[in-house]
Nucleic acid binder design. Structure first.
Lengths: 346, 346
DNA sequence: ATGAAAGCGCTAACAT
DNA sequence: ATGTTAGCGCTTTCAT
């Protein structure tokens, strides 16, 4: 009764055997023809292709995976899907994967280690070939263990638990440069709004802030620092609270694009003029930063380059087997000077 | 020699047979235990789970797919990965898929129908359960045919070739409303910068522009219309050329977020003040639109709602089989009034 | 150049 | 409650 092969409308289950039967040949011949193997006549190849097309044959990737023990899946594991960083990574990965015949599995963990684990499990189950991961701050041991069986590259963030090379940004350098720039304009009360220091990107950039201050001989003042993870909203509230201070900071450096976004919003709401009342250095460089007020001075992340570097590392690892050596690299950000910073006014 | 099962460092290929052997039971018992089937003692379940964990067993999704003829893969096919729309769709889909135990395959076609086809082929090969697609303007027949074998929902754009319901936005309504708003401020020379009319989103919004003009009794003037697809750059150049006109338009409506972005940039470069010299209505509402100048008046797309609607449709189709009826729906955008439009000056 | 047969890892129908 | 067996669709020996 429930025979999938009768004339039910959908030609769902056409297999290599059906094609073979249709042609009166063996199914291995069909396989050879379709896969362009040797020891098969051109004529047969043509006939098989023809028949396959007519019958609507579609190779079953699952069966192939079963035989070869490897899929064509590459996992992209990220905290969220709206960030500049994600966009760059996804864009580069998508293009490269497509060209190489891989499929890209998108996994969003929202900074939840449990969700992250479940994604990694699913990728292992699917015998994913490789993984690009922006890890959560609290990667679980089990996650790290599972990841060992695959080619992995850490992207943007780095977790020491995960035994895989990383492609990151030298955030410390970026933020230190921002502080130096502000100092050169005469600023001394420089605030910092950044990510929590439980993640590599957080402590890295915070360290840069401290280094920057040290170099200009200004003591670190915890009262001028705000760290938080809810990004947009936190940027708003942190900036608002800094504006309450007396004396106010004369400049502020942000540690993420979303925090910058929130901070700028807060300034606007409070009627604070940038850069007349407050100099601002953002972090990251979404295309719209240049449209904010007179254009936002910012620590520009070379997202495209980072993404390309990560993908190339991954593809190399995949091609070279699990032992392919691969070094972690950290790219240098650079300061883009626009109009949101100005000399300190007496 | 090349025995995967010897003590090579990676415990790659642990199968249920290995677990069974380890326990001295049959592999079907292991399967039952692992899948929580009936007719199996709690004790055995526990022993099997324990052993599986110890040996590092990971189920082979490929084999499972082979048996069941269905994978747990859902395809998301989109033109690009940076847009507000994509972000909304990916976010909603990712969350829902995760909860339902599906994996999300990201496919980027860059508006190239050939690439689109290859993605659809790959998804068919992988026996994807369902597909959410923002189709290219020129969907190929073969693509449409392949898509028939799967549960599909069209998102944002609609292609008549594809036999699947769509969740779109009533762009005509949105743009017409924008025109009406400008007319109420006294504007008559209202320009339009939009997408090419080869895609549903293009002609739809253009139609809205014409309707809007008609209602206020202004003749359609092709000289005030610019249509292009390269988005950001086109927005810039189209706006620049409109600003050359004599007499200039006193207001402009955009037909996409990226075009808006480019257009605003062009205004800024040309030293045109918004809204004093030119009233501007954008399209879409990325979070940063409110930070542009005094805040951008815009046709707000309810991306979140759209995405949710699309996902729900898809999940329903997947659950209900291929014959599950599903109606196309078009959501209403609404105008968000900020400060980029002003009464016409004499 | 082609066919026959085995087996990848899993589930499920059918014994016991 | 557990074991035996077959078969999903494919690739790949090994025969012929």
């Amino acid at each position: 009764m429930a025979d999938g092969r009768t004339g039910t409308l959908l030609p769902q289950n056409v297999t290599i055997k059906d094609v073979a039967e249709h042609l009166g040949v063996s199914h291995s011949t069909v396989s050879r023809a379709l896969n362009d193997r040797r020891h098969i006549s051109e004529e047969m190849k043509a006939r098989v292709r023809q028949a396959a097309a007519e019958l609507g044959y579609v190779v079953n990737a699952g069966a192939r995976t079963l035989r070869s023990a490897e899929s064509n899946l590459i996992g992209l594991i990220v905290p969220d899907v709206g960030s500049e960083l994600f966009t760059a990574a996804a864009k580069a990965l998508a293009a490269r994967c497509f060209r190489a015949g891989y499929q890209l599995v998108l996994c969003v963990h929202e900074d939840d280690p449990e969700i992250e684990l479940r994604h990694v499990e699913a990728l292992r189950q699917a015998r994913a070939l490789g993984v690009v991961i922006i890890p959560t701050p609290g990667v679980l041991d089990q996650t790290a263990a599972l990841l060992k069986a695959t080619s992995v590259v850490q992207f943007s963030r780095y977790s020491p638990k995960i035994d895989a090379p990383s492609v990151t940004l030298d955030g410390a350098h970026g933020v230190a440069t921002a502080v130096a720039h502000l100092a050169s304009l005469g600023h001394r009360r420089i605030a910092y709004v950044g990510l929590p220091d439980d993640r590599s990107t957080g402590w890295d950039r915070l360290a840069g802030y401290r280094q920057g201050l040290e170099r200009i001989g200004v003591a670190f003042d915890p009262g001028l620092v705000r760290l938080g993870a809810t990004l947009l909203e936190y940027g708003r509230s942190a900036m608002a609270s800094l504006l309450q201070l007396d004396p106010r900071p004369t400049a502020v450096v942000f540690g993420s694009a979303d925090l910058t976004h929130g901070g700028v919003e807060a300034c606007r709401r409070a009627g604070v003029r940038v850069p007349q009342d407050l100099s601002v250095v953002g972090y990251g460089d979404p295309a719209w930063f240049k449209l904010i007020g007179p254009g936002l001075t910012t620590v520009a992340v070379v997202t495209g380059e980072m993404a390309e570097a990560a993908i190339l590392q991954l593809l190399r690892k995949i091609a070279g087997g699990p032992d392919e050596a691969a070094a972690s690299i950290a790219l240098e950000p650079h300061l883009i000077l626009r109009e949101s910073t100005a000399p300190l006014r007496a």
